[in-house]
Nucleic acid binder design. Structure first.
Length: 611
DNA sequence: GAGCACTGC
């Protein structure tokens, strides 16, 4: 039964000018690439165009976003434009939340959800159209989806696919899909003036001084330029590498006492409430000091200038050392341009780069894609589970190096998920059905045989989220003191268990409001505690479904640690001297000072994470 | 003696 919805395209959106062109291209081609910057309207209008063409009737229109928040808010916007309720004709699904119904014809979701669905339904039979949005972000999920979709298209001639991307590297997507047509849509952005102000090491200035100098220059530039403009001083966005750098620079900037100016930190670990401060109206000027969250995840409103020191932390896996790390690196040109673009959204902007134009020109054009920077065990496990055949011949946009693939297979062998010849065994099949890292999945399986699944479920969920313990700058001691209440003297893994048990006891007794207060008093993030419980619940249900054995009696600690060890064999270490330990591959490291084992000099330890 | 960012049936 076709659903009739009133469809119109807001005149002011650039994409609305191209509706008939896009319709024609979609009718004549199976795949279409749409390039357009922020504000082009592609995200909200493309699903409507599909609907207009009669799609979303035979099957759903799938529309993927890289983040949960985006999936929810895009869903809301489309529902508003179509004048329907969220969850009816237009719904969304993200982890823990499925707000769709039988009458849904557009389904917003994270790309991770679509990927997970492929495990059960490789042909994606419930969809007649798939829109992969923000494909330029090139996450592991997106790359895997684009590879699978390429194989799928000939098997589903009725399926239409739209790939959208910022206007970088459109040809690459087109080439991947048999020279699919490209339609470019302009964005609604303003020009950004870029200035290069290299930090001169010879002058012995530190980053703070360079940033202060840049801010002063910015203010002067604005005054000169302001003759023709309205007299609103816009806000400044400064990109920094991490929490500590933000703290240091904030301190230095506050000392400068810029008149009528507020310094605002922004990073993902802040509570929602603290993050929301950037969206609140304010008088005077604001200088926002942010990590990379402001590059893609959070759009800070009101920014008219950007200061870009040109570095960021980037997660990298080394096949040689078997370790995932977070080094600070020079960012790519694409990333620098994305940062600059953050100040051209409401008025012409100014971007000051704290490096030379030469330096910029010599940088790589694009950031290395995630698939080249990460351990492939999880991707390979999923591919084996789907029986995709030879991994070498899977049509990745960028093929991972053979040695990275071999390393991923080796990890799976070490976990006992595949045979010596690289085939998935029974253990591996079950692991592939668990929504966690293969190492963690292996721990759960081991725990099932060692009568400690209950406990290991709590620990694995804890390791899958960000640490719920908070340590505010001005209350570090008070926080440490409270956290010690939950500390197990011999094991940080068991500390998680102790925290969980305490929290559960309180949760049974308290109202939600009281529980929030309990969290505040004990320096725990309520939001992350909730995420912990949600992941735990999801994993618990899945383990039950997969037939893992739950223990009725409390487990013995030895068994808990043996189970964790089964997943983390490469992270055992022996005491060397003083605070130093020697791990596998002769790696030397120290224990994190927050650990209960920090100064204990144990003979052997098992590290949850090494960096 | 101390913390980049996302994400999953």
């Amino acid at each position: 039964m076709p659903i009739k919805l009133p469809i119109s395209y807001p005149q002011e959106l650039p994409l609305s000018q191209k509706v008939s062109e896009i319709k024609q291209a979609l009718e004549q081609n199976q795949v279409l690439i749409v390039g357009g910057e922020t504000g082009s309207g592609k995200t909200t209008q493309l699903p409507k165009i599909c609907l207009d063409l009669g799609r979303g009737q035979q099957g759903l229109i799938a529309h993927t976003q890289p983040r949960r928040l985006a999936a929810r808010s895009v869903c809301q916007r489309i529902a508003d434009e179509l004048k329907v309720e969220v969850g009816k004709e237009v719904g969304y699904q993200v982890r823990f939340q499925n707000i769709t119904s039988d009458i849904s014809c557009i389904k917003l979701m994270t790309d991770g959800i679509l990927l997970a669905e492929i495990q059960q339904d490789p042909l994606l039979k419930q969809y007649d159209t798939v829109i992969i949005d923000e494909a330029h972000e090139r996450s592991l999920n997106i790359d895997f989806l684009l590879g699978h979709l390429k194989n799928l298209l000939p098997l589903r001639p009725d399926l239409k696919l739209i790939i959208t991307s910022a206007t970088i590297d459109l040809d690459k997507f087109s080439a991947h899909f048999n020279q699919a047509p490209i339609i470019e849509v302009s964005g609604r952005t303003f020009p950004v003036d870029t200035f290069y102000r290299p930090q001169l090491e010879a002058e012995d200035k530190d980053l703070a001084e360079n940033i202060i100098a840049a801010i002063r220059e910015l203010f002067e530039l604005e005054q000169k330029q302001q003759k023709g403009h309205k007299n609103r001083k816009g806000d400044v966005l400064v990109f920094l590498s991490g929490e500590r750098e933000i703290r240091d620079i904030a301190q230095a900037l506050r000392k400068e006492k810029f008149s009528n100016t507020e310094i605002l930190p922004l990073y993902a670990r802040l509570s929602n409430k603290e993050q929301n401060r950037v969206f609140q109206a304010h008088t005077g000027r604001r200088i926002v000091l942010s990590t990379n969250v402001a590059e893609t995840s959070i759009t800070v409103p009101g920014i008219t200038s950007v200061i870009d020191p040109g570095t960021a932390r980037l997660s990298r896996y080394s096949v040689r050392s078997k370790i995932q790390r977070l080094p600070i690196e020079a960012i790519s040109q694409a990333s620098a341009n994305q940062r600059a673009g953050r100040c051209g959204r409401i008025a012409p902007g100014i971007c000051i780069r704290l490096y030379s134009e030469d330096d910029f020109q010599q940088r790589p054009e694009f950031t290395d894609t995630e698939i080249t920077r990460t351990n492939l065990a999880s991707v390979i496990l999923q591919m084996l589970n789907m029986d995709l055949g030879d991994i070498d011949s899977f049509p990745f946009l960028d093929k991972p190096e053979t040695k990275a693939i071999n390393d991923g297979i080796k990890v799976l062998q070490e976990l006992g998920a595949v045979t010596d010849s690289g085939e998935l065994n029974k253990t591996g099949k079950i692991m592939a059905d668990m929504p966690v890292d293969p190492r963690y999945a292996r721990m759960l399986m081991e725990a099932s045989t060692r009568a400690c699944l209950q406990e290991v479920l709590v620990i694995v969920s804890a390791m899958s989220i960000q640490d719920p313990r908070e340590r505010p700058l001005d209350k570090q001691q008070a926080a440490d003191e409270k956290h010690r209440l939950f500390q197990h003297p011999q094991s940080d893994f068991l500390s998680f268990l102790q925290l969980w048990q305490n929290f559960e006891d309180e949760r049974q007794l308290l109202t939600q409001n009281q529980l929030r207060k309990f969290c505040q008093r004990h320096f725990l993030s309520y939001v992350r505690m909730r995420e912990w419980r949600e992941i735990h619940r999801q994993l618990h249900l899945q383990c039950r479904k997969l037939g893992l054995k739950e223990n009725r009696e409390p487990a013995n600690e030895e068994n808990i640690h043996q189970s964790i060890l089964r997943g983390l064999i490469v992270q055992v270490a022996r005491h060397h001297e003083e605070l130093e330990y020697i791990g596998t591959r002769n790696r030397k490291f120290q224990i994190f000072p927050g650990s209960s084992l920090f100064k204990k000099k144990c003979k052997w330890i098992l590290a949850a994470r090494i960096s």
